[in-house]
C-alpha cells in the first residue's frame, strides 16, 4: 500500500463501504463538572454550608451513525462541539449516559502518551507503551526497530523523553500506538503537531489501516488533514451531527459557515478556531479531553451560540 498516493477515493459516504464496524445508536454523554466557587464567609452566614454546585454538561446529544470497515472518518466542528467526548464514548472509556455503542472489536484510542514516563528514555517508554497496549515484551522487541524508524528517533532513543520536543513526543506516541495495527483506531488531534514529513507518513499509516479493512476515526481542526487522510467526514456541532458526506463537502460547508459567522460578529468570536494554524495549539490540551472545554466556558458559550445559528442556517440552505 506504500505507493498509493491519493487515499481519498471518489466514493461518497458509505456508498461502497464494507460491513458496519461501529454503530452508534442515539448516543448521549452527560457529565458533571463542579463549579469552582470560593466559599466566602458571608455566603455561609446567609445560606449555610451547602454542597458544591455542579453543572451537567450534555456534551453529546443523540448521535446515530454507522461507520463501515475500510472507512476513515474525519470529525469536524468548533471547540466544545463534543468531538473528543464522542471519540472517548466510542472507545468505551467514557461511560455513555444513554443510547448504545456497538463495535466489531474494542477500538484503540490513540492516547498512549498518558502511560509513558517522561523521566525514562524513549527506549524504555516504547516497552511501557507497548505493554500497556497489550503487547508482550517479545512482540515489542520484534517491532522495536520499526517503531523507532517510524518515529524517526534513532539518535534520541536513549535520551529521557522529557528532553524531546512536542513533535518528537507526538511521533513516538503515534508510532507506538499504531505498532499494534488495531482494527479500529481513534485519533484525537494527535497528528497535527508533527512536521510535514511525519504528517505524510502518518497519513500513509492511516491509509494502510483503512485499506486492510480497518476503520479510522480522526478528530482534527486540521482541515486539510481530514481531506488528505479521510474517505468520509461528519460535522458535529453542539453534540449533534449536522452533516455527513465526503471530506471535501464537509470541509467546504464547515469553512463557509465559520467564515460567515466570523464576518457577522467580529467582536464576539475574534480569537477563535481557524483551521490549520490553530491545530498545533489545540492539540496541546487534547489529552485533557473534555476538561479543556470547560475552562473557557465564557468563550465556549459564545461559540455555542454562534454554532446554533450556523446550524439553523445550514439546515435552511439545504432545505430541511
Amino acid at each position: 500500500m506504500e505507493g498509493s498516493e491519493s487515499p481519498v477515493a471518489a466514493s461518497g459516504a458509505s456508498a461502497d463501504a464494507g460491513p458496519v464496524s461501529i454503530r452508534l445508536e442515539d448516543v448521549h454523554v452527560t457529565y458533571r463538572v463542579y463549579e469552582q466557587r470560593h466559599l466566602r464567609l458571608d455566603d455561609i452566614l446567609e445560606e449555610g454550608i451547602k454542597p458544591r454546585r455542579y453543572r451537567s454538561i450534555h456534551a453529546v446529544r443523540g448521535v446515530t451513525l454507522d461507520i463501515h470497515a475500510g472507512e476513515a472518518v474525519g470529525v469536524v466542528g468548533s471547540n466544545g462541539a463534543g468531538k473528543s467526548t464522542l471519540l472517548r464514548a466510542i472507545s468505551g472509556l467514557l461511560p455513555i449516559s444513554d443510547g448504545a455503542v456497538y463495535a466489531r472489536s474494542q477500538p484503540a484510542f490513540l492516547g498512549v502518551g498518558a502511560a509513558l514516563k517522561p523521566k525514562l528514555s524513549g527506549r524504555q517508554n516504547i516497552y511501557i507503551g507497548g505493554l500497556v497496549l497489550g503487547l508482550s515484551n517479545k512482540e515489542i522487541e520484534e517491532r522495536f526497530d520499526d517503531i523507532v524508524r517510524f518515529a524517526g528517533l534513532r539518535r534520541f532513543i536513549d535520551l529521557p523523553m522529557k528532553a524531546y520536543s512536542s513533535g518528537m513526543r507526538a511521533r513516538l506516541h503515534f508510532a507506538i500506538a499504531t505498532a499494534v495495527t488495531p482494527e479500529i483506531l481513534l485519533i484525537d488531534e494527535a497528528l497535527a503537531v508533527g512536521d510535514r514529513k511525519f504528517r505524510r507518513r502518518s497519513a500513509r499509516r492511516v491509509e494502510e489501516i483503512r485499506a486492510g479493512a480497518g476503520t479510522v476515526l480522526l478528530v482534527s481542526h486540521g482541515l486539510d488533514e481530514i481531506i488528505r487522510s479521510c474517505t468520509r467526514a461528519v460535522w458535529l456541532e453542539q453534540g449533534r451531527l449536522v452533516m455527513d458526506g465526503t471530506p471535501e463537502e464537509i470541509v467546504e460547508a464547515y469553512t463557509k459557515a465559520e467564515d460567515a459567522s466570523d464576518d457577522e460578529n467580529d467582536e464576539a468570536g475574534a480569537a477563535d478556531v481557524s483551521d490549520d494554524g490553530d491545530a498545533a495549539g489545540a492539540s496541546g490540551d487534547a489529552s485533557a479531553g473534555g476538561v479543556g472545554a470547560v475552562e473557557d466556558r465564557e468563550a465556549a458559550r459564545r461559540r455555542a451560540k454562534r454554532a446554533r445559528r450556523e446550524q439553523r442556517r445550514a439546515a435552511r440552505e439545504q432545505g430541511v
Binding site: 461518497g12 459516504a13 460491513p19 458496519v20 464496524s21 454503530r23 452508534l24 445508536e25 446515530t64 451513525l65 454507522d66 466510542i90 468505551g92 461511560p95 455513555i96 448504545a100 455503542v101 456497538y102 463495535a103 466489531r104 472489536s105 474494542q106 477500538p107 461528519v234 451531527l241 449536522v242 452533516m243 455527513d244 458526506g245 465526503t246 463537502e249 464537509i250 460547508a253 439546515a315 439545504q318 430541511v320
Partner: peptide
C-alpha cells in the same frame, strides 16, 4: 444531491449483534 444532510444520517437496520457487533461499555 450532495448526499449529506441530517435526514441521511441514520444507522442501518437490523440487530447489531447479528452483524458481528459487540455492545461496548457493558
Amino acid at each position: 444531491a450532495d448526499g449529506g444532510v441530517i435526514a441521511a444520517i441514520t444507522a442501518g437496520d437490523g440487530d447489531p449483534r447479528e452483524q458481528g457487533l459487540v455492545r461496548l461499555g457493558t
